[in-house]
Design a protein around this nucleic acid. Structure first.
Lengths: 234, 234
DNA sequence: AAGAATCCTTGATGCGGATCAAGTTTTTTT
DNA sequence: AAAAAAACTTGATCCGCATCAAGGATTCTT
């Protein structure tokens, strides 16, 4: 009997459930979609869509890793969501009277995206109830993910947040305890919502405490349980 | 030509667009829904739904004001959203494999809610594409609202956040610059994500600076422009 | 109306973490 | 391979805000 309220929250912001909405389409709809869709390849670091720009397209992430974020006037970005393949960018532009993207998206690594115009997308929702149920489920999940991240960044403090990010990388992206640390300190800092210096300090501390090891750009989680504990306590 | 990135974010978390999805239903669907729906009245302070409890129902807020929040083990709550009438509680329970409420809901004031079971709700989505488009729009809006609040609470500091909340009360709830301050300092503190003492201190400061006046439990925004400026700068 | 309880205000203190600064290592450029 | 640039580390300082504390004002109780 666990309460499991805090434990469910991950600052990492990657969903568990890969939702496949394409498989649901009828052959006719698939054909329509194929004819309308365009594949675009983005290189690491390139901007996929820009907050405030006219929202005319919905984008399916087919391969890669995408950062969804809000830009502020001060230059600090707030990372809302990190999306691997099987996710959709631009759904927030579907709300009534809203014709601009609410968030920006950028490729963390080389990323392949399928683009379709919003009208075609709306059409699919209208003609295929199962498809629209999937989209609703996806949006509901995004809501939960962003809220969980919101919780982490406001309630936990630096050690917990960074532990969280490391665990998330291990669990959800690389699916093993030893993985290549391709993100820079700056990127880690942005995700965990702290300064670059804090990231460096905390990582050093984690090494001293034998929670993690780092050798040739690979990070190895040695004491998973204690790291998990830190991520819970905040 | 304004950038308007920061300015769009309100910690207040109340949507502008009241989305009416009930008007879209066919007579048959309305009849079905009426027969399944139950009206429940909550008094000020009562819990409408509890995070972690089995999610079996979707709730339409018809009258009142509802706080949507996440509970933490430490006892601190995170307010995600403040909903007046014409909003829906429990949509996040629609995502796949998820059978518990992700958030708690509590009535700020006496509130009337219409309750329907999730199956019936899913049925409506399946049979009426326009209804499901409305739900998608609503979810997309919730996403934007929560993200905006996320941004405020992590990027702005106390003065800006409290100014934000006051402006939001004036603009979105009471729709006038002088309004009854029915929320306690504690409730204001929870919404603005700060301590009760900070709220008191900042309100005193706002009074000293002639930004606001307070007489017999009414708050009057005297210098709207400067308060708005503070809410932007953070 | 007296007492209790809650709410509100104001000052003093302390802590987390950002920022600043300066040196070291790694990567990129040419 | 040398030079330049970027990334990383570590220490020192500072600031925002929570927390603690204590007195004053309101509201609730009986």
């Amino acid at each position: 009997m666990t309460e499991g309220q805090t434990s469910a929250q991950h600052s990492c912001a990657i969903g568990n459930n890969l939702i496949s909405c394409m498989e649901i389409l009828t052959p006719d709809e698939s054909t329509l979609l194929e004819s309308k869709m365009v594949v675009v390849n983005y290189r690491k670091g390139e901007i996929i869509c820009k907050q405030g720009a006219p929202a005319t397209q919905i984008m399916f992430v087919r391969e890669g890793l995408v950062k969804i974020y809000m830009e502020s006037n001060s230059g600090e970005n707030l990372v809302l969501h990190i999306m691997p393949e099987m996710n959709i960018i631009g759904l927030s532009a579907l709300f009534e009277g809203n014709n601009v993207y609410q968030f920006s998206a950028q490729a963390y690594i080389n990323t392949r995206v399928q683009v379709v115009d919003i009208q075609t997308f709306r059409q699919l929702i209208r003609t295929n109830p199962e498809f629209s149920l999937k989209i609703i489920a996806l949006l509901a999940e995004y809501n939960t993910i962003i809220s969980g991240r919101f919780f982490c960044l406001t309630q936990k403090q630096t050690y917990g947040r960074l532990a969280d990010v490391l665990l998330c990388l291990a669990n959800r992206i690389y699916k093993q305890r030893k993985f290549p640390l391709s993100l820079s300190r700056k990127e880690l800092a942005e995700i965990a919502g702290m300064s670059v210096e804090s990231v460096a300090r905390i990582l050093t501390r984690f090494k001293e405490e034998n929670l993690i090891e780092m050798e040739c750009k690979h990070l190895n989680i040695v004491d998973y349980d204690r790291l998990f504990d830190i991520s819970l306590k905040g």
